[in-house]
Design a protein around this nucleic acid. Structure first.
Length: 272
DNA sequence: AACACGACCTGGTAGC
DNA sequence: TGCTACCAGGTCGTGT
């Protein structure tokens, strides 16, 4: 589920539901591991009674800014989801944390694998940390071709791993990194600094394009609060399509392993 | 600095 | 049907 576009959809969905400005009557973490090493009781106590001022996204991170000068840092990791619910008593099986708002509505953090995390920090500390750890947003004006080429030229890492690193550019994960490389016709194993300037420009454009399209798809999929809508997902050209014919040349898509994850690409269209 | 790899977790499914 | 093995959209810590 959650790369930048899906996390953006989660945030829009929360804002559209009007959670910003609501008072949190109660906050509970049902599974201590998601807050580790922070103490669940401390976090719950600090959050309960605050107002949720603003929902912000940085890369794949969600920041819930509170009225007490602190913010919750939510990371969905692989299977997490954060969504508003009309009835705060609604608790699906994989509920890991929940918020009850003044007036009777609620918000849920659901995560079947429980790899997601929720931590509490002073707002200034959290935003500073994000500035330092999270790179440029691909849909932001700061993501210029000059910036991208400069970052690329000083990295010897394989292209796919470079894109998945959150430091230079934030928000790409396994799916959209593969899709962007396919559109730019770049082999995922090529050292970034060896990619030609024209190809880098193509990749820059592909990243922006893929992210825009995926954000739109994700927004549609989340149109109904808290529920995915089938058939509205981003149409992948290579991801999870091993052996299927390439949409351009019809040769079979190949799967390899990079950094312990699957990479899908077309060996004919994406040359070294 | 860069890389591989295990850890963190649960659930779905391909294959026997 | 039932079991096993492997796979999964992410990140961090450790060791080489």
């Amino acid at each position: 589920m959650p790369e930048l576009p899906e996390v953006e959809a989660v945030c829009r969905n929360l804002r559209a539901a009007g959670v910003e400005g609501l008072s949190i009557v109660r906050f509970r973490i049902e599974r201590p591991g998601i807050a580790r090493p922070q103490e669940v009781g401390d976090v719950e106590a600090a959050v309960s009674g605050c107002r949720l001022l603003r929902v912000e996204r940085r890369g794949k991170n969600i920041l819930l800014h509170l009225s007490n000068g602190q913010s919750l840092h939510v990371h969905l990791r692989m299977t997490g989801n954060l969504y508003p619910v009309p009835d705060p008593r609604f608790r699906p099986m994989a509920t890991r944390a929940w918020w009850e708002f003044d007036g009777g509505r609620g918000m849920l953090f659901e995560d079947s694998r429980a790899l997601g995390r929720i931590h509490l920090y002073p707002t200034a500390e959290l935003t500073a940390r994000m500035d330092e750890q999270i790179g440029v947003e691909p849909l932001d004006g700061a993501f210029t071709t000059q910036f991208f080429v400069q970052q690329a030229k000083r990295s010897g890492r394989p292209a796919k791993l470079f894109l998945m690193d959150q430091h230079p550019v934030a928000g790409l994960g396994n799916i959209y990194a593969a899709e962007a490389l396919f559109r730019a016709r770049i082999h995922p194993e090529v050292p970034m600094k060896r990619v030609s300037k024209p190809r880098l420009l193509a990749l820059h454009g592909a990243i922006v394009q893929v992210m825009r399209e995926a954000v739109d798809s994700a927004a549609l999929a989340y149109a109904e609060p808290g529920r995915f809508v089938e058939g509205e997902s981003f149409p992948c050209a290579v991801y999870d399509r091993e052996q299927e014919p390439c949409t351009i040349c019809e040769r079979p898509i190949r799967r390899i392993t990079q950094g312990g994850r699957s990479t899908y690409y077309c060996p004919a269209c994406q040359r070294r």
